[in-house]
Amino acid sequence: MLRLRQLFYAELIRSWLELVRYPAQFVLGLLLLGLIFYLLFGFARLAGALDSSGLQTTKLITGYLLGIFALATIGGPAQQVSREVKSGSLENMVLSGQGLTAFFVVQVLARSWYSLLQLSLLFVALVFVYKSAFVLNWLLLPAFFLFSIAALGLGLVAGAVVLLYKEVGNIFTLVQLLVFPAVMVEVPQLQWFPLTQGASITRKLLSGVAINPVDWAILALGAVALYSLGVYLFQTADLVARKKGLLGHE
């Protein structure tokens, strides 16, 4: 546990140094995310999906930000695997003796502050620009936590695929395109999907709607199941890669 805390700390420092050294990526990312929302908002208005009460705008902002966070978290392990393999530092991770799964989970968690900071700034800006009203509630914390756990689980699945099959960038982009609308818009057919349900609960909480305990239980079960599946598949991919001698090869 102590080693994992150290690892978390080391990753935190490393990601901070990268941000300080390459600030343009952060700033441009923020601007682009704002621009993309502006376009989405325009499309929604043209399609007549926004009402005068501002409730739909609130839902759109929440869905958009959660979607972006989900994409960043899902892409985290896969992106980190590729980067570590490219720089040849995956070997150091293995030699650290933490186990690759624990290492990548800690890495994604330590680096999530980057997306959180970016999205918080965007959240404040969008609320200000579109004059949306939100109800802040402590229950948002467990809802967001479970949503993040589910996204991390899916990220580990993607990381497992990259660990074994390396060049899967195009397929990965398509998967992200599938996940983003599922989080952003409330699709009734996808209510079983933990990310959709997590986003739905968060949206309701922000709109001041009470949540049914059954919905909480389903979200918790789904998030834990997805995370467990991710851990299992990543560990299996790690084992297979070591057996096939693929670990560390580009």
């Binding site: 150290q6 690892l7 700390y9 080391a10 420092i13 490393r14 140094l17 990268e18 050294r21 390459y22 720089s87 040849g88 530092s89 070997e91 150091n92 991770m93 030699l95 650290s96 003796g97 933490q98 560390g248």
Partner: peptide, 30 residues
């Protein structure tokens, strides 16, 4: 693992965005 150090590839292993000092500091911590 704690008793082992390894040089697998002399051309790789460094994080390109960190300085030599930061690379070493990071590795020592992990």
């Amino acid at each position: 693992m704690a008793q082992l150090g390894a040089l697998i590839d002399t051309n790789r292993g460094l994080y390109p965005r960190l300085s030599p000092f930061e690379n070493l500091q990071y590795t020592c911590i992990i």
